[in-house]
């Protein structure tokens, strides 16, 4: 058992938790949080699979993907939250 495998399993676990909450939750903010956790899980699986325990170096291509993903995710999260606030605000009044 190597540390790579530990993080593979942790990433897959994050994915499973996020998918389960996405399917069972009605609350908008909770769902957006679940989407973020899902993205973290995917990023972790990508990085763990790019890690080479023999040399201790991680493949730079998945690293660049994940870096891009983090920045895109925060922008998408902000847009989604703006939409959610607008929707909730209009349904309340």
């Amino acid at each position: 058992m190597t540390s790579d495998l530990v993080y593979h399993v942790a990433g897959a676990g994050l994915l499973a938790i996020a998918l389960w909450r996405l399917a069972t939750c009605r609350d908008t903010l909770r769902r957006i949080t679940a989407l973020n956790v899902l993205a973290i899980g995917i990023a972790m699986v990508l990085l763990a699979s790019g890690h080479d325990p023999a040399t201790g170096v991680t493949n730079p291509v998945p690293q660049a993907f994940v870096l891009t993903g983090i920045v895109v995710l925060v922008a998408v999260t902000a847009a989604l939250l703006a939409l959610a606030e607008r929707l909730e605000g209009s349904s309340d009044e």
Binding site: D4, Y7, T28, L29, I32, T33, N36, I40, A43, L47, A48, G50, H51, G56, V57, T58, Q63, V66, L67, I70, V71, L73, V74, T77, A78, L81, A84, E85, E88, G89
Partner: peptide, 29 residues
């Protein structure tokens, strides 16, 4: 996992800024 570039971005953006956005939305929602 030997990915310090990504770790820096996650700590600053994923934990910091996304958390701040969520707190703001939690207050408003």
């Amino acid at each position: 996992l030997a990915a310090p570039d990504v770790a820096l971005a996650e700590a600053a953006i994923g934990a910091g800024l996304t958390g701040a956005l969520f707190l703001r939305a939690a207050r408003r929602l």
